[in-house]
Design a protein around this nucleic acid. Sequence first.
DNA 1: GTTGGCACTCGAAAGATATGAGTGCTAAAG
DNA 2: CTTTAGCACTCATATCTTTCGAGTGCCAAC
Lengths: 348, 348
Amino acid sequence: MFFDDRKKRILSAIVETYIRTGEPVGSKTLSEFPGISVSPATVRNEMAALFEMGLLEQPHTSAGRVPSHLGYRAYIDSLMRAKPLTEDEKDGIDALFNIGDPDPDKLLADCAEALAEYTGCATIAMTTTPSYVTVEHIDIVPADATTVVLLVIASNGVVKSKVCRLGFRVNTGIADFFRKFANDRFCGHTLKEITAEFMNSVSIQLGEYSGVFNPLIVGIYELCKEVYDGQYYLGGREKLLTYNEYSDRALEIMKLISKRDELGPVIGNNPSGVTVFIGKENSLSQLSGSSLLVARFSIGENDCGTIGLIGPVRMDYSRLIPHLEYFAEKLGTLLSITYQRKTGDENG
Amino acid sequence: MFFDDRKKRILSAIVETYIRTGEPVGSKTLSEFPGISVSPATVRNEMAALFEMGLLEQPHTSAGRVPSHLGYRAYIDSLMRAKPLTEDEKDGIDALFNIGDPDPDKLLADCAEALAEYTGCATIAMTTTPSYVTVEHIDIVPADATTVVLLVIASNGVVKSKVCRLGFRVNTGIADFFRKFANDRFCGHTLKEITAEFMNSVSIQLGEYSGVFNPLIVGIYELCKEVYDGQYYLGGREKLLTYNEYSDRALEIMKLISKRDELGPVIGNNPSGVTVFIGKENSLSQLSGSSLLVARFSIGENDCGTIGLIGPVRMDYSRLIPHLEYFAEKLGTLLSITYQRKTGDENG
DNA sequence: GTTGGCACTCGAAAGATATGAGTGCTAAAG
DNA sequence: CTTTAGCACTCATATCTTTCGAGTGCCAAC
């Protein structure tokens, strides 16, 4: 009753066949598998043992076997042979992102969409900003008579801008005054510190001018919050409809995925590399019928976000895990190019 | 066999009941309707007449009647009594958008989402830019050593910005040079004219500098294109899953809605006010089981976009049409405030 | 340890039956 | 001429029954 080699081959065969067909796998099918050259009866004995060990489940008495949650776990952790991406696949993905100077937000959104397309799963792409990131510089640029552009540059290299319409003419004197004021007040503060209360106290310091400058104060707050909160993009939620596992649960899951509050904490706290949550392993009970794959990506050394995949437990892990990994790497590389200034390259 | 008052009342009752229940409506149910005080047999005679006139359909011999496409049309065009929004509803919607100086893009996306929430339908919010809109001003603002912010201001008041990372240090001299160059070349041209070919010819004029400035040229192109193309936001596509009409077609419709190429032309060319396409009236055959409601919104006098609603043919037109109308108005008002500068208010 | 044989289980598919809402038609009443 | 009750008829839906077969567990033989 050890977990010997033949048992491993049988478990692998069951997982792979079930993933492919979605039907419980029977002893006859397995006995015809290359690498399993024993009779159905022997396979049945082995299956009974694997069932005892908790690695298989039986939908009902007279059906074949299905991997249990532990069965998948054993398969993924030690039996599965990951299918690395072919060069063609890599080229295809590279080509998608082969655009100069991409907008980081758009990049992330596109990545979520592309990942969904490649994997047939719902995807999430999320960035997180470490709490030590500070405001490095604030700029205000008159665009036309009453319009200015606000810029917030964070210490991690992220730059966000917002167009502000003011109720009065803005000349360079006013712009210079506000620029100095804002930089004095905000530079060096972590983004985390820039709260609504903080903004209130700053506003008070503007005294009689607090009214007219309020749109700018609010604008700065919004930009800092935008940088600190990071992004949360979804892709391909409708892909779930293609799996009959979701025939009556698709709406619920799709709604859940949309909720950053719910999913953000779950996917945001994982080690580097690909982490897999199989069915009931998910902390969210609604995901007990789904598997969640997450991979972190980083800019240089700094971990900065997560991409994730949600699909039926019966998903092709051996293909999807390397894919997710590749997308995460790619994303990290591309963002690192965009945000490289911290590590030099200022010649020109 | 005229379309007399009683027939109208019966048709209205059928449409309204069917919209509410989703079940074919029978003569007995109708005879109990207030306002229809005749026996089921009489109702049957009338229904037979309405059927002859093409206003009703029969799912099968022994079922009740269902409004035909023409039946809905007659109902919407002349029988329906629109349910105006209550003050509470208006207040609720107003509250959603009660934010100072909103980002127009975000406003549109939020509007699509809110409209979906209020109506239970999938929504589209789209902007279009008239072909006479020109580039009014281009600005380039150094943000840090090698980063600049590009600004494109269009003659319709739209301002878009993009952060560009350059491979070299940018001083004010360089910025001033490029600003002048860009404004000389682009200002006054319509956005429509700013094509890839046009950009190429401009790039050539930069001679030996075309290489280093290429990111900026590309950036300007992207911004102009972004303004000219306008936005296309979707909301609540998953709402369709709540209707069993879509039980096996949801994926197809959801994919269709995502395709701007397909839907853009359909919803972009409509008169002002709310336009309704019922089922087969839609030019896209995939929408033959859906109704499409579109409403234009405008900034001041200038028509600038469309919001649309997609749901089952059996939708509550009397409620949704006024809602869509209100959202369109609201959106127009809010955008007009943002883009008001064309009509004055430059005091300060 | 492995295998063929065999009775047994149980879900899915196919067929049979019943139910009932709703119809069209007819003829009588208003 | 319009309205209505009566009635036979239709047909989708629901329920129940039957059949079918893939797959199992166990046993005895190899």
